[in-house]
């Protein structure tokens, strides 16, 4: 099948399915209507297997010089999720589609291949992911730190929620219970915070039940 720009969301979906078959899944397409004329914003999300990630970017590069907005990443507990936010169809008014490629990396093996040979502009964001999430970008041309100070601990990563995160480092800086600080910077520990919310919801539910259960007088 021939793919000519500008592509529609369905075409983008089919294109990746054709090129990568079973290695791409969890497709989700969105269209948000905006304004009086109801012009739409179109987005597409999908997950790609790490082994085929480079192939996916190469496939994208065959359509148009890829515009990588940024790669965002977060700690999901057992794995780390990286989302590469690409844009396609730029230069066609109102037709641009955001392609969000998700890659899941298990915590035991945090390697992801570099895409700087396909998208030279990706270097900044790859270096950032290395220092903030502890991901190892293989074959990266420049693996130095970009944002963090040289004296920042080598085994701590600010966006991680586990023992490699900043919990130990920052919990004594502004304690939640210390009233001398007017506003705590970090509400730690995270587990405590989750418990707190759960407790609050439970009590709210109990109160609701009580209210509902009370007979009318």
């Amino acid at each position: 099948m021939n793919y000519e720009l500008p592509l529609s969301v369905e075409e983008v979906e089919n294109y990746f399915k054709e090129k990568l078959e079973d290695d791409v899944n969890d497709f989700k397409t969105e269209e948000i209507k905006k304004g009086l004329k109801e012009t739409g914003i179109e987005l597409i999300w999908f997950t790609v297997k790490r082994e085929r990630f480079r192939d996916a970017v190469k496939a994208l590069a065959e359509l148009q010089t890829p515009h990588l907005s940024v790669a965002s990443g977060s700690d999901m507990g057992e794995n780390i999720e990286l989302i590469y936010h690409f844009q396609i169809n730029y230069g066609y008014p109102g037709k641009e589609i955001s392609i969000n490629m998700k890659v899941h990396l298990p915590k035991e093996d945090l390697n992801i291949p570099s895409i700087t040979d396909i998208v030279p502009g990706a270097l900044t964001t790859e270096r950032e992911k290395q220092e903030f999430l502890g991901v190892n970008v293989t074959n990266i041309p420049d693996s130095r730190r970009l944002w963090l100070e040289d004296d920042f601990p080598k085994d701590k990563y600010p966006w991680r929620w586990d023992h490699e995160g900043m919990e130990e480092m920052s919990k004594y800086v502004h304690s939640e219970d210390d009233e001398t600080f007017d506003k705590p910077i970090a509400k730690y520990p995270r587990k405590k915070e989750i418990e707190k919310k759960k407790n609050r919801q439970d009590t709210m539910e109990e109160e609701k039940k009580k209210e509902d259960g009370e007979p009318d007088e």
Partner: peptide, 14 residues
């Protein structure tokens, strides 16, 4: 490349 035209947000689509 211009997000206002490529993928209009707010009222730019109008």
């Amino acid at each position: 490349k211009d997000v206002r035209i490529d993928q209009p947000y707010a009222a730019y689509g109008d």
